[in-house]
C-alpha cells in the first residue's frame, strides 16, 4: 500500500517461526538420547503438554475457565481404550475416535458454558466432570470401574512400529502427535479466527458490536479444545495399554489449570513449558520427599500468581533475547 507509510511487518510476519521455537523443538529429540532410561516420563510429559494445550486454547485464548477439563481427557481415554479392546486397535484410528467422542461431548456441553460468569463456568465444568467420573465409576461392565479398563491391545503405529517395552515407540508416537496438534493449534491462534478469540477474551462486550457471533465462536473453540483433550487421553490409553478411573478425576482437572498458570496462558508454549517443569518437578521432588512434595508446588504456585502473573513464559519474555523486541 503506497499511500500508507507504515511498516506492516510486525503484524504481517507475526506468525513466522522464531529461532527459539526451532531450538525448543530440538529439546525433546535431544531428551530421547539424554534421558533414554526415562522414556515413560518423557511420554507422560508430551501427553500432559497436549492436554494442557487443549486448555490453553479455551482458557488462554477464548477466556473460558474450566475446572473439569479432565472430562474430555477421560472420555478420549475410554473411547480409545474401548475401541482397542473391541478390535479397533489401530492407534491413529483410536485417536480419531477419541477426538470425535470428546468433541461431541464438548459440543453438547459448550452450550452450558456460553452464559454466565467465570464462577458459573467453573461450577458447570466441575459438575459435568464429576457426573462423568461417577458414571464411569458405576458402569463397571463398560469401564472396569475402579479396577480400570483391562485388555487394551494396541496395534503397531502405521502397521510398522509396535509398542515396545522400553517405550521408544510410545515416546516418538506421543511426540509426533503432540507436534502435529501443536502445529495446527499454532496456525489456528495466528489466524483471524484466533484473533477473534483473543478479542472475546479481552472484551466480550465489544465483539458483537463489530459483527462477531460470540456464541458461535465459543462453541467451536470449546469443541476443538475438547477434541484436543480427547486425543491426549487417547494417547495415554494407547501408550500405557490401560485406562484407570483417575483420567476423569478432579485432581487431574485442577492440576491442569495449575500447570497452565505456571507456564503462562495464551501463548501455547506456556502450556508446553509448564507441563515440562511440572512433570519434572513432580518426578524429582516426589523422589526426594514422596509425601510432601506438593508443598513446594503450592509455594511455587503462590509465588507465580503473586509475582509473575504471566507464568514462566512471562518471565522468559522479559529476558533480552536476540531477535525479539522487548515488550
Amino acid at each position: 500500500m503506497a499511500s500508507v507509510k507504515l511498516d506492516l511487518a510486525p503484524l504481517r510476519q507475526a506468525a513466522a517461526w522464531h529461532w527459539a521455537e526451532y531450538a525448543f523443538w530440538l529439546m525433546p529429540v535431544l531428551a530421547y538420547f539424554a534421558f533414554g532410561e526415562n522414556l515413560s516420563l518423557l511420554s507422560q510429559i508430551a501427553i500432559a503438554a497436549l492436554f494442557c494445550l487443549s486448555l490453553d486454547l479455551i482458557l488462554g485464548y477464548a477466556g473460558i475457565v474450566s475446572l473439569g477439563h479432565a472430562a474430555f481427557f477421560g472420555l478420549g481415554a475410554y473411547a480409545a481404550g474401548l475401541l482397542a479392546k473391541y478390535g479397533w486397535g489401530d492407534p491413529l484410528l483410536g485417536l480419531a475416535g477419541a477426538a470425535a467422542f470428546a468433541a461431541a461431548a464438548g459440543f453438547v456441553t459448550s452450550f452450558l458454558v456460553l452464559r454466565g460468569s467465570d464462577l458459573t463456568r467453573l461450577m458447570v465444568t466441575l459438575g459435568v466432570a464429576m457426573m462423568l467420573f461417577e458414571a464411569a465409576n458405576k458402569l463397571t461392565d463398560f469401564t472396569g470401574g475402579v479396577d480400570g479398563l483391562q485388555g487394551v491391545e494396541v496395534k503397531p503405529v502405521l502397521g510398522m512400529f509396535g509398542f515396545d517395552l522400553y517405550g521408544k515407540t510410545a515416546y516418538w508416537y506421543s511426540l509426533a502427535v503432540l507436534f502435529v496438534m501443536f502445529w495446527l493449534a499454532r496456525r489456528l491462534v495466528h489466524s483471524p479466527f484466533g484473533l477473534s478469540l483473543r478479542g472475546i477474551r479481552q472484551n466480550v462486550g465489544r465483539m458483537p458490536a463489530i459483527g462477531a457471533p460470540v456464541n458461535g465462536r465459543l462453541v467451536v473453540i470449546y469443541t476443538i479444545g475438547a477434541a484436543y483433550a480427547g486425543v491426549a487421553g487417547g494417547l495415554l490409553t494407547q501408550t500405557t495399554q490401560f485406562v484407570s478411573l483417575d483420567v476423569l478425576s478432579f485432581s487431574r482437572s485442577a492440576e491442569l489449570l495449575l500447570i497452565l498458570v505456571l507456564g503462562g496462558t495464551g501463548r501455547l508454549y506456556g502450556a508446553l513449558i509448564g507441563s515440562m517443569v511440572f512433570m519434572a518437578a513432580h518426578h524429582f521432588l516426589s523422589d526426594i520427599n514422596p509425601q510432601y512434595w506438593q508443598f513446594w508446588l503450592g509455594a511455587a504456585l503462590v509465588v507465580i500468581v503473586l509475582f509473575a502473573r504471566d507464568g514462566i513464559m512471562g518471565l522468559l519474555g522479559k529476558l533480552p533475547v536476540p531477535g525479539r523486541k522487548p515488550s
Binding site: L6, L8, P10, L11, R12, Q13, A14, A15, A16, R187, L188, H190, S191, P192, F193, G194, L195, S196, G199, I210, G211, A212, P213, R217, V220
Partner: peptide, 25 residues
C-alpha cells in the same frame, strides 16, 4: 493495528478462517 484489523476481518467475513495467519490477509 491488530484490533482494527480484527474489526476489518469480521466485516470481510474472515472471522471463521483459521488456516492462513492474519498476516497473510
Amino acid at each position: 493495528l491488530e484490533s482494527v484489523t480484527l474489526s476489518v476481518c469480521e466485516r470481510l467475513g474472515l472471522g471463521w478462517s483459521w488456516w492462513k495467519p492474519v498476516g497473510a490477509h
